[in-house]
Amino acid sequence: MRKTFQLHVEGKNRDRVLDAVKHEIRKYIKRERRRDLPEGADFWDFDCQFGRTKEDAAVAHLSALTGLINGVAAEGGAQFYVEILAKPAKRTPRAPGEPQGADEDGMDDDGEEV
């Protein structure tokens, strides 16, 4: 998905437009995750970019997209650009002795330091 979303639509409530945009993005991600995985892949990973325009889009994590969208809406931005590309990926096994809930940044799933 490569798309520029407009937040100001004539005759529509801005909050409803924002909700519809988030729904469309979530629906796209769910659809991509349902696709069959190629041989040797464990899950679908996503390469994401976000910016006010296509030219100033920067790499963003999938889980940060909603917060970035809310930030643009809170600042009163008229539009934003989102690029989400699915790619097959393989999970890497955890090292022996590594805590089960820890991520690469040393934080567990609840955001607490391990």
Rank of each mutant, 00 (worst) to 15 (best):
V114S: 00
D47F: 09
F43A: 12
K87Y: 03
L7Y: 07
A74W: 01
A95F: 10
K12A: 15
D47W: 06
G76F: 02
V114T: 06
D19E: 12
P38V: 05
D105V: 03
D56V: 04
P99H: 11
L18P: 00
E24V: 04
A86D: 10
K54P: 07
R91V: 01
V82M: 05
R34C: 03
F5S: 08
A78T: 12
D42N: 13
D110R: 08
E98I: 13
M107N: 10
G101A: 09
A89H: 06
E32T: 01
A60C: 07
E75P: 00
D109T: 08
G77D: 02
L68I: 02
D15E: 15
G51R: 02
H8G: 04
A102M: 14
D56C: 03
I84F: 01
E55T: 14
G101I: 00
D15C: 03
R35E: 15
L68K: 14
P93H: 01
P99C: 09
R35T: 07
R31I: 04
F80D: 06
D109E: 15
K87N: 09
V9N: 07
A41R: 10
I25D: 06
K90A: 12
D47M: 08
K12M: 13
V59L: 07
T92R: 15
R52C: 01
D47P: 00
A95P: 13
Y81E: 12
A89P: 05
L18E: 03
M1C: 08
E104V: 06
P99R: 09
L18F: 05
R14Y: 01
H23G: 10
D103S: 07
G40A: 13
L62D: 01
A74S: 11
G101P: 03
D109M: 11
P99W: 09
D36S: 15
D19W: 00
R91H: 04
D42R: 00
G106D: 08
G97V: 07
D45E: 13
N13C: 09
R14F: 02
Q49K: 15
A58L: 10
K30W: 00
A95C: 05
A60H: 01
H61C: 05
E55A: 15
D103N: 13
W44Y: 12
A58M: 11
V72T: 08
R14S: 05
G111M: 01
Y28I: 03
M107I: 03
V21C: 03
R2L: 09
G111S: 04
T66V: 10
T53R: 14
F80L: 05
A78N: 13
F46S: 04
A64V: 04
Y81S: 11
D105Y: 10
I84P: 04
E104K: 12
R16F: 05
E83C: 10
R94H: 07
F46E: 02
I84R: 02
D45S: 15
A60S: 11
T4Q: 11
D105I: 00
L7V: 10
E10Q: 15
L62K: 03
E98C: 09
K54V: 11
R26M: 02
F46T: 07
